[in-house]
Design a binder for these strands. Structure first.
Length: 485
DNA sequence: TTTAGGG
DNA sequence: CCCTAAA
C-alpha cells in the first residue's frame, strides 16, 4: 500500500511564484484549496489522492467518502478514492455560495498567506517526487525523510500559521486572515496492522470589518486503513461556511500586475504601432494619455506597408532580401549625391524592431537613421523646403511608418548641428551608415547649403538666396519656398 | 493639426 | 525621442 501524499508535498515545495502560476493555469477557480491540492497530486498520479494503490490487496472493501454534508459511497476497486468526486462536490458547494467583493478580498488574503506559509513550511520536508511512503509490512520501502518517526514509516506534520495582511485593510478597516494547515501522514505497522492516512486540514478565517464576515474551514482527509486483510479508504472534506467563494481572480490580477506591468503595456503599444498602418491616421487610442504620442504625424503608408527590410542597419547585420524583392542596397550612394534619383523605394533598416524590450518604457523605438534615409530627408527638404515636414514625410517617407514628421524635423536639426561642426571627413565616410558623426561629406555639404538657404526656423529669417540656389539636383526650381514671409 | 523649441 | 506651446 502506498500513500502518495508526498507527491503533494513535493509540489508544494515549489517556489511561490511557480505555485501561483500553477494556480493560474487551472481552469476553475473554485475550491482553491482542495482543488489545488488535488491537482498537484494528480500531476503525478492521475486522479487519486492519497492512496495510490493497494499492493497485494485483492479484496477491497467499499469505503465511504464523505464530502461536506454529502456522503458518497465509492467502490474501492482499482480506483480507490477518487477525489474527482470531491471536486465535483465542491463545485456544487461553490455554486451555492454567494459572491461579493468582500469575499474576493478575503480570498486574496488567504491565497497570499497560503502561498506563503504552506509552501515554505512544507518545503522542509523535501520529498522527492517519486518517494512513496510504504507502510505495513513493507516498511523497508518507507520513506519519510527528515520528518519524523520512521521506524514504522510514520510521517506527521502539522503546521499552523496566522497572519494579517495589512494591504487589505482598505475600506472596511481590518482584515484578518489566519491559515492553518495541517498534514498528517502516518503508517503504523503493528501486529500485521498497517494504517496510514493523510489529513489535510486547512483552516482559514477572514475577518473584514464586521465580525462573522468570512469564515472558512476546510478539511480534507484521506486515510487508508489496512488491517492486514482488508483496506479501507476514506476521504472527507468538510467545508464550513459555504458563503465564501474563493476566487482566484484577485490574486491572479495582482500577480500579473506586479509581475509584468510594463511589458504588457509595452506590447500593447507596439501592437498598436504596427496595426495603425491604415491609411489615415492612427487610431486614436483609448487612453490618450500615455500612448498618444506614438506617432503624431501619420503614416500615409501605403506602398509597402510595414517596412521594407533593408540591410543597412547600423546595429545589426543586414538581413537583406527578406521578402521584398526590391531590396536595394544603398551602400554606394554614399557617393556624392544620389541626388534626384531619389524615390527609390524606401529602404529602411530594421535594426531595432519588434523586440519586446524588457525595459518596456513607452518610448518609441529609437531607430537609427541610415544614410539612405538621411539622403532622402535632405532631398525632401530640398524639394519641399525646410519646415514642410509633413509633406516630406508624406512624399518621401511614405514607406516608413515610423519616422514621423517630427522625427524628420529632429533629424534635420541634428544634421544642422552636425554640418556646423563640420568635421566630415573622418575618412570613415564609408558607404555604411552614418552612425554618429560619419556622414558623407557630400551630404554634409548639402545640409550646409540648405541650412544657409533657409535657416531652420523658417520663421524669422527670410532668405535671400532664393534665386541663385543651385540646389544640386533638387529639382531645378529649388524649394518652392513660401518666401512670402 | 502641424511647427517650433526645449528637455 | 518625448513633451508642450503656439499658430
Amino acid at each position: 500500500m502506498q500513500v502518495k501524499v508526498e507527491s503533494s508535498l513535493v509540489h508544494t515545495t515549489m517556489s511561490k511564484a511557480s505555485q501561483v502560476k500553477h494556480e493560474q493555469e487551472e481552469p476553475k477557480d473554485s475550491n482553491f484549496y482542495v482543488d489545488n491540492f488535488l491537482s498537484m497530486d494528480m500531476d503525478n498520479d492521475g486522479k487519486y489522492f492519497g492512496i495510490d494503490e493497494f499492493s497485494n490487496q485483492e479484496d477491497h472493501k467499499p469505503k465511504s467518502a464523505k464530502v461536506g454534508r454529502h456522503s458518497y459511497i465509492t467502490q474501492q476497486g482499482e480506483e480507490d478514492l477518487n477525489l474527482g468526486a470531491l471536486d465535483g462536490i465542491l463545485d456544487e458547494i461553490d455554486e451555492v455560495e454567494g459572491d461579493d467583493a468582500a469575499q474576493s478580498l478575503a480570498a486574496a488574503c488567504k491565497d497570499y498567506l497560503l502561498d506563503l506559509d504552506f509552501t515554505q513550511e512544507i518545503s522542509a520536508l523535501n520529498h522527492r517526487p517519486s518517494d512513496k511512503i510504504r507502510i505495513g509490512n513493507s516498511s523497508s520501502d518507507s520513506h519519510s525523510p527528515r520528518c519524523s518517526g520512521s521506524s514504522n514509516g510514520a510521517v506527521v506534520m502539522s503546521e499552523s500559521s496566522a497572519g494579517t495582511d495589512p494591504e487589505h485593510n482598505g475600506r472596511d478597516g481590518t482584515c484578518k486572515v489566519s491559515v492553518n494547515y495541517e498534514m498528517n501522514v502516518y503508517g503504523r505497522d503493528q501486529h500485521g496492522h498497517a494504517q496510514q492516512s493523510g489529513v489535510i486540514n486547512h483552516l482559514t478565517s477572514s475577518n473584514i470589518g464586521e465580525p462573522n464576515e468570512l469564515w472558512n474551514m476546510t478539511t480534507i482527509r484521506a486515510a487508508v486503513h489496512y488491517d492486514g486483510r482488508n483496506s479501507f479508504a476514506e476521504a472527507s472534506v468538510d467545508d464550513m461556511d459555504l458563503r465564501q467563494k474563493r476566487q482566484r481572480k484577485p490574486t491572479r490580477r495582482y500577480i500579473e500586475e506586479s509581475t509584468e506591468p510594463k511589458l504588457s503595456r509595452s506590447l500593447h503599444t507596439r501592437e498598436k504601432l504596427v496595426n495603425t498602418t491604415s491609411k489615415g491616421q492612427r487610431p486614436r487610442g483609448r487612453p490618450p494619455g500615455p500612448l498618444r504620442s506614438m506617432m503624431p504625424g501619420m503614416m500615409t503608408s501605403l506602398p509597402m506597408e510595414e517596412e521594407s527590410s533593408e540591410g543597412v542597419g547600423i546595429g545589426t547585420s543586414s538581413r537583406a532580401s527578406s521578402e521584398k524583392g526590391l531590396v536595394e542596397k544603398h551602400e554606394n550612394c554614399s557617393e556624392d549625391e544620389l541626388g534626384e534619383s531619389s524615390f527609390e523605394d524606401e529602404s529602411e533598416d530594421e535594426i531595432t524592431r519588434n523586440r519586446p524590450k524588457k525595459s518596456g518604457d513607452r518610448r518609441k523605438q529609437q531607430r537609427m537613421w541610415t544614410l539612405p534615409e538621411v539622403v532622402k530627408l535632405v532631398d525632401g527638404i530640398s524639394e519641399f523646403g525646410v519646415g514642410r515636414w509633413t509633406q516630406i514625410k508624406r512624399l518621401s517617407f511614405a514607406a516608413s511608418p515610423y519616422r514621423t514628421p517630427i522625427d524628420l524635423r529632429d533629424k534635420w536639426r541634428n544634421l544642422l548641428r552636425a554640418s556646423c561642426a563640420l568635421k566630415p571627413n573622418n575618412g570613415t565616410t564609408g558607404p555604411e551608415k552614418n552612425s554618429g558623426r560619419l556622414l558623407p561629406k557630400s551630404l554634409l555639404r548639402r545640409v550646409h547649403e540648405l541650412a544657409s538657404l533657409h535657416p531652420y526656423p523658417r520663421r524669422g529669417a527670410s532668405k535671400s538666396s532664393l534665386l541663385s540656389v543651385g540646389k544640386k539636383g533638387a529639382s531645378g526650381r529649388n524649394l518652392r519656398r513660401r518666401s512670402s514671409a
